[in-house]
Design a protein around this nucleic acid. Structure first.
Lengths: 183, 183
DNA sequence: GTCTATACGCCGATAGAC
DNA sequence: GTCTATCGGCGTATAGAC
């Protein structure tokens, strides 16, 4: 039948989304299989049919991050405002799939998950290269770290208390700073 | 006897140190009471004599952070090189008690520990004020986030693989960037 | 103060019905 | 494919000996 070619069942994606949400909202510790299954609306057994064990679930989450990060890098390279400005702007938590995926992966890296840390380092490296082409290699790290710092701080706000936090003003300041670094 | 006035027993501090080390090295998940007791060289029962439950242990860890952060703020305010440069320099992982305490607290905040997050926000706010007095309010956030970003990235390196990571070069770049923001 | 022994619940994972 | 039932193990915490 038409539409049957979609490789992944719906439930699988629901589970993946639920895991991501829980990682963001309550942290790795509380993102148990029980909790994930409940939020995804399936039973624990049903979950374990799609992902035989928790590592598989984590691996799938990291693979999604890689895919989204790849797309984001393409957009960054093509951004008319320049890679640096694009990067700063996108460092603001805006609840995109990439944002969610990134923060979720952060939670895993924090718990000392080695594979998550490796993927992170790789993405950071690619960002740095693009920023360097834009503002010059000498100031690239400064820009990269500004964005990371913004992310770092925004993370504490997206807890159970929930609100996206109004950091738009911060972005403006940071963009002004980037301009000064450039010139 | 002389020396008896020290408020806290030695074992208590050993436990606190062990907990901090484990948070840094293996993350919150693996920093179990068993592991902490083992590293501190006491039994689990002995540990639970000093800290009736895990929350108490966490609370003591956060209180130590507050004390160290207070001392650090004083040093920052008095730094001859200026608050901003001091801040950037101290954002490099250098294995001081403050560094260790800060990263350990980070691990707790990451796991969605609300009290840890609150303390963090307070410290960040104080840093921002001092930096603002140094480089001006418009560029303060840029400097603060640079330092945070440096910290954020250095954190992934202090895993089981261990090395402090050679980010001294980054600090130089960042200090140059701060100078450009200032002028 | 510090230890051993143990209770108890939750987590990840398996077996097997439907 | 998705469910229920259940196991083994581990993590927190308590009781009580020394």
């Amino acid at each position: 039948m038409i539409g049957t070619m979609a490789r992944k069942p719906v439930a699988r994606d629901a589970v993946l989304d639920a895991f991501e949400e829980l990682l963001i909202d309550v942290g790795e510790r509380a993102a148990t299989l029980d909790a994930v299954a409940k939020r995804a609306g399936v039973s624990k057994g049903g979950l374990l049919y799609h992902f035989p064990n928790k590592e598989t679930l984590i691996a799938a989450t990291l693979e999604r991050l890689d895919r989204l990060a790849g797309e984001d890098l393409d957009a960054m390279a093509a951004a008319p405002e320049g890679a640096a400005a694009y990067f700063i702007r996108s460092s603001l938590w805006s609840d995109t799939p990439m944002d969610r995926s990134f923060v979720a992966a952060t939670r895993l890296a924090e718990v000392a998950h080695e594979e998550a840390r490796r993927r992170f380092a790789a993405i950071q490296h690619q960002w740095l290269e693009l920023i360097g082409k834009d503002v010059g290699p000498a100031m690239a790290k400064a820009v990269l770290y500004m964005g990371d710092g913004l992310y770092f701080n925004a993370m504490w706000e997206s807890g159970p208390s929930g609100k996206p936090g109004s950091r738009e003003a911060d972005v403006k300041e940071l963009l002004a700073a980037v301009d000064r670094l450039r010139g």
